[in-house]
Each structure stands twice: as structure tokens, then as C-alpha cells.
């Protein structure tokens, strides 16, 4: 019993000593923070910010000015460069304030881990997802993706999130941690071309063969069509009429919606000329969705 009390007393004493040691170290670290170091830190942050913005500008501007075949390849550098600059800045800052010895690294890592565990769990998750995304590449800058109910072109790949430019010119910020739980639909996976599917709804009694010929001709004569990639027409019979899907590729995936408009406009003109009828009504009770 006495031995146990003595042991407990010993433990309390050593815990107190450890706490005291940590406090002493923290005090030592704090005492080393000088005005000059703060100034240095601010300069490092400012330089990193300017470097990132400059590199962003250079990469994006260069990629938009070179031949289209190089556009996406150049843009792929963007996230890597940003990550490199940010990592360098963070390591430099930590080295400045924390004197990154082995003990300090362990102490700081533990502290950060606890802090992140509670306060910045999602933030840390997004950063880690972003780093993994760099190598796994579910999306890259310039890709046209659908993620978290949003569709658009990836215009920026940040440390925490990507930015999507939607067809309505809105910019949507989507954190990387969506790749843990959501599906990512990527239309071009780093390629310049992305298939466009344009749908046409016609009555059951139209001449399907003629419609197919017209749609192929419309696609082949569109200024947007990438002629070396396949053009295909698919037809499905629905309860409300016939659904034709024209699958083709624009020269530039950015022209996706202009391309669909061009195809639809010119096909409708030909349908009118041939007096093709449109479906008279849609079967509201049908389980068949036209999105299928």
C-alpha cells in the first residue's frame, strides 16, 4: 500500500515534470519568436502568394495561347506547381519557428494531429484527397466532370478544392474530399475531345432510316465536329415516340453546348423540310425516362 502510494506520488511527480518540460519548451519556442521572424514569415507568405498567382497566370495564359493539342497537357502542371510552392512555404515557415529537430517534428505532428482531428477534420480530409487526386487523377485541370450534382470544366485545382466553371458561367468550388464518397464522371480524362450526345424526339411513324441519314449529315457538316472521331446515331423506341441519340465529338470540348445547339438547329430545319412529326404527347405514367 505504501509502495503503491509512493508509486502514485512518483507518477504524479513525473507527469508534472513532463508538463513542466512541455511548458518550458513551448515557452522557449515562444520566446524565440521575434519581430524579425514574424517579418520573415510575412515575407515568405507574400512571396509564396505572388509566386502561386504568377505561376497560375503563366500556366493558364500559356496553355490558352499554344496549339490546342498542348492546352490540357500544360494545364496539368498547375496543381503540381501550386502544391510544390505551398509545401515549400509551409516547411520554411515551420523551420523558421519550430526549429525542426526530430523531437520538435514529433511534438508538432502530435499537436497538429489532435487539432486537425477536432477542428479541421474536413479541411485535412480535403487536402489529403487533393494530394491523392494529383496522382490518382479522377479529374485534372481542363477536364469536364460531373461531381456533387455539378457539371463543368475544371478551371482550377487548389490544395483543398477544385473550381468548376459551369455552362451558365458560374464558378463552383468543390472540396476534394468528395472523391472519398461521391462518384466523379469525367467526360474527357485529360483529352481535348469529349463526346457530346444530342437527343432528338420524333413521332413513331417517321422514316427512321432517313432520320439517321439526316442526323449523320448534320453532324458531318457542322463546323464544330471532330471529323476523325466516330459519329454514331442510336435509336430507341419509347412509348411516346422515337428517341434518336446523335453521338459525336466537337473539336474542342468547350464548345459542347454551342455544338449541341448547332446540331439541333440544323437538324430541326431538315426535319421541317421533310415534314417529320414530333411526338404528340409524353406518357406521364411511363416508367421510361427520356434521360435514359
Amino acid at each position: 500500500m505504501i509502495w503503491q502510494l509512493a508509486q502514485t506520488d512518483e507518477n504524479n511527480k513525473s507527469a508534472g515534470e513532463a508538463a513542466g518540460e512541455t511548458a518550458r519548451q513551448a515557452g522557449q519556442i515562444l520566446s524565440q519568436i521575434t519581430t524579425w521572424k514574424i517579418a520573415q514569415a510575412l515575407i515568405i507568405v507574400a512571396v509564396a502568394f505572388v509566386v502561386i498567382k504568377s505561376l497560375d497566370w503563366i500556366v493558364i495564359r500559356t496553355s490558352e495561347r499554344v496549339a490546342k493539342e498542348w492546352r490540357l497537357r500544360i494545364k496539368q502542371f498547375l496543381p503540381f506547381i501550386r502544391t510544390l510552392v505551398m509545401t515549400t512555404a509551409v516547411v520554411t515557415l515551420m523551420n523558421l519557428f519550430l526549429n525542426l529537430s526530430r523531437d520538435n517534428v514529433l511534438a508538432v505532428t502530435g499537436t497538429i494531429a489532435v487539432a486537425l482531428g477536432f477542428a479541421f477534420k474536413d479541411y485535412a480530409s480535403s487536402i489529403i484527397a487533393g494530394l491523392i487526386g494529383l496522382f490518382e487523377a479522377p479529374y485534372r485541370v481542363g477536364d469536364r466532370i460531373r461531381i456533387a450534382d455539378h457539371y463543368g470544366e475544371v478551371v482550377s485545382y487548389g490544395l483543398r478544392a477544385i473550381r468548376l466553371k459551369t455552362p451558365t458561367d458560374n464558378v463552383v468550388t468543390v472540396p476534394h474530399n468528395h472523391i472519398w464518397t461521391s462518384t466523379v464522371s469525367n467526360a474527357n480524362m485529360g483529352a481535348l475531345e469529349a463526346q457530346v450526345v444530342t437527343e432528338f424526339y420524333l413521332a413513331h411513324d417517321v422514316d427512321a432510316q432517313r432520320v439517321k441519314q439526316i442526323l449523320l449529315r448534320v453532324a458531318y457538316t457542322s463546323k464544330y465536329t471532330h471529323l476523325t472521331l466516330p459519329v454514331v446515331v442510336i435509336m430507341q423506341e419509347k412509348s411516346w415516340g422515337s428517341l434518336f441519340k446523335l453521338k459525336s465529338y466537337p473539336l474542342d470540348a468547350r464548345d459542347e453546348f454551342l455544338y449541341m445547339t448547332d446540331l439541333t438547329t440544323r437538324a430541326k430545319r431538315m426535319f421541317a423540310k421533310h415534314q417529320f412529326a414530333y411526338p404528340r404527347w409524353f406518357d406521364a405514367n411511363s416508367n421510361t425516362s427520356i434521360d435514359e
Binding site: A67, K68, E69, L192, E193, H226, L227, T228, L251, D252
Partner: peptide, 9 residues
């Protein structure tokens, strides 16, 4: 050259 580099046939 320019058109060929921009995907045109």
C-alpha cells in the same frame, strides 16, 4: 500549320 495544330482535318 495552325489549323492542323488545333485539331482541324
Amino acid at each position: 500549320q495552325e489549323l492542323a495544330a488545333n485539331n482541324f482535318l
